[in-house]
Amino acid sequence: MADVITCPSGLTGRVRGMKVREERVLADRKLAKSGGQVDELLAACWEETIDAGPYALGEGGKLELGKVLQGDRFFALLMVRALTYGPEYAFGVSCRNDSCRARIEWEIDLTKLPVRKLSEESRAAFVAENRFETTLPDAGKRVAFKLLTGEDERKLPAVQRSSPDKLLSAVLAYRVLEIDGVEPKTKRQFLEDLTMRDADFLVDEFDRVDCGVDTTIEIECPECFSTQEVDLPFDRGFFLPGPDRTARRKARSSSSPT
């Protein structure tokens, strides 16, 4: 089954659901470690580019997935999953209430998640040189930064592994292109010395000019009725059949003659 989708940036194309042969992509540990699974899945399921949006197509009119914004890639993956198994996605989490800790089973419609579109201003800046600027409120410094693409997705895990005790400053340093009055070699140290107010402001600026899907979901515990916000679970299990299908398979298997 295939469908036409329009990503947050305006990129429009025809995508299909996963086929059996894509199972090898999900099972490939090398691809998982290198961050290449998303590229492989999208390359397999992206059938046609109808409108390239802010992107320049490669040789033969091919969409270069490494140059596609992270928000577009994630949106496309959600739609591939919806086309594969249907829009409903069920997951479970534990209640955060220490006096409860019940298991919460929740289901959402992936096609109903709020989408943040890329503004015309952001599109122009991205197409020009992928450079955005803002001023830190406490430090008073002008900062230039970039939006993340597929190529960055592949590099970020290594960046994070290299500084497990300084994840925030490592990610900030990767996205920040330059800081007024700060030498490139001292950029990381400057970012580590930022006030948390400046760091939060900078992350908010990243989100303000970017596009993507809001994956923060409010759920309610059926036992204590407390509400909590959780992020949509996104791991290998996201691309596997839902619990209802798994239960039906188990039931069929147990009722089969031996």
Score class of each variant (00 low, 15 high):
Met1Ala: 06
Thr6Val: 08
Cys7Ile: 02
Gly13Arg: 10
Gly17Ser: 03
Gly17Val: 00
Gly17Cys: 02
Leu26Phe: 04
Asp28Gly: 01
Asp28Gln: 02
Leu31Pro: 05
Gly35Thr: 05
Val38Ser: 15
Val38Met: 15
Glu40Met: 07
Glu40Asn: 03
Cys45Asn: 12
Trp46Val: 01
Glu47Ala: 02
Glu48Asn: 03
Thr49Val: 10
Ala52Ser: 13
Gly60Leu: 07
Lys62Ser: 12
Leu63Asp: 01
Glu64Ile: 12
Gly66Gln: 08
Phe74Gly: 02
Leu78Val: 01
Arg81Trp: 12
Ala82Met: 05
Ala82Pro: 05
Thr84Asp: 10
Tyr85Leu: 07
Arg96Tyr: 02
Arg96Met: 07
Asn97Met: 01
Asn97Arg: 09
Asp98Ala: 13
Ser99Asp: 11
Cys100Arg: 08
Cys100Ser: 05
Arg101Ala: 09
Ala102Ile: 00
Arg103Asn: 10
Arg103Pro: 00
Ile104Cys: 01
Glu105Ile: 02
Glu107Ile: 01
Glu107Asp: 03
Leu110Gln: 00
Lys112Tyr: 00
Pro114Leu: 06
Pro114Arg: 07
Arg116Met: 08
Lys117Gln: 15
Ser122Pro: 01
Val127Gly: 06
Ala128Thr: 02
Arg131Trp: 03
Arg131Cys: 14
Ala139Lys: 09
Ala139Thr: 09
Arg142Ala: 11
Arg142Ser: 12
Gly150Leu: 14
Glu151Asp: 13
Lys155Ala: 10
Ala158Cys: 07
Gln160His: 00
Asp165Ile: 11
Ser169Pro: 10
Ser169Arg: 06
Ala170Cys: 12
Val171Glu: 12
Val171Gly: 09
Leu172Ala: 05
Ala173Ser: 12
Val176Arg: 03
Thr186Gln: 15
Lys187Ile: 00
Arg188Ala: 13
Phe190Gln: 07
Leu191Met: 09
Thr195Pro: 00
Thr195Trp: 07
Thr195Leu: 08
Met196His: 05
Asp204His: 06
Asp204Met: 12
Phe206Cys: 03
Thr215Ser: 09
Thr215Cys: 11
Thr216Gln: 13
Ile217Arg: 08
Cys221Asp: 03
Phe225Leu: 10
Thr227Ile: 07
Thr227Pro: 10
Gln228Ile: 03
Asp231Pro: 05
Asp231Ala: 10
Phe234Lys: 02
Asp235Pro: 10
Asp235Trp: 06
Arg236Met: 05
Arg236Val: 03
Gly237Phe: 13
Leu240Ile: 05
Gly242Asp: 14
Asp244Arg: 15
Thr246Asp: 12
Arg248Ile: 07
Arg249Phe: 15
Lys250Cys: 10
Arg252Thr: 00
Ser253Trp: 12
Ser256His: 14
Ser256Phe: 15
